[in-house]
């Protein structure tokens, strides 16, 4: 089954009539796309993170894309590059508040992790904020194979290189 059938999310917007209890049943079911499908398959099946490299523009886009946005070259099979599962911490933030503004019990860390020429946003765990340094190397930690479903969160989090 293609991941497109699994990337399903109700937007949370319920399209209501102004009458109580009347609403239209609608969910949004997005496809990962031609490039996204393969990108997610590699994470799910092989614990690999792929980018696409445009040799003309000398840029490796991560996540992998169908086309180079700068010159419109089509990224074919030979443009796909395994960028590894170790990236560098390009920037990060520590979230202290929940979405509703209440304090978080435990602050969470979100990193911008440089892989190829792209940045992947992901959680940073197994580290306190005090121990983080921009430029440090971080490794992807994957969920166990049985729990992976073809999603960005098949990568559970990143952690500082041991």
């Amino acid at each position: 089954m293609a991941f497109r059938e699994r990337i399903e999310k109700n937007t949370g917007n319920i399209f209501r009539s102004s009458e109580e209890g009347k609403y239209f049943p609608v969910v949004s079911r997005y496809t990962a796309g031609v490039a996204g499908q393969k990108f997610l398959e590699e994470i799910k099946e092989n614990e690999k993170i792929f980018g696409t490299r445009c040799s003309k523009c000398e840029i490796t886009f991560v996540p992998a894309k169908l086309y180079c946005e700068r010159c419109f070259a089509r990224m074919e099979k030979e443009h796909w590059v395994d960028v590894g599962t170790r990236g560098t911490l390009y920037s990060y933030t520590v979230a202290y508040e929940e979405k509703d503004g209440s304090p978080k019990e435990t602050p969470s860390i979100i990193g911008a992790i440089k892989l190829g020429d792209g940045l992947l946003f992901h959680w940073i765990k197994e580290s306190s904020a005090d121990d983080l340094e921009i430029g440090m190397e971080v490794d992807a930690v994957f969920k166990p194979k049985g729990e992976r479903r073809g999603s960005l969160v098949d990568i559970d989090y990143f952690k500082p290189k041991k």
Binding site: E8, F15, R16, S17, S18, Y23, F24, P25, V26, V27, S28, R29, Y30, T31
Partner: peptide, 19 residues
Amino acid sequence: MSNAMPHAQGFFLTIFDHI
């Protein structure tokens, strides 16, 4: 259009006047 399941009608509801 196919992102909307089963149909985009739910989104079109919001083009109608509230009252």
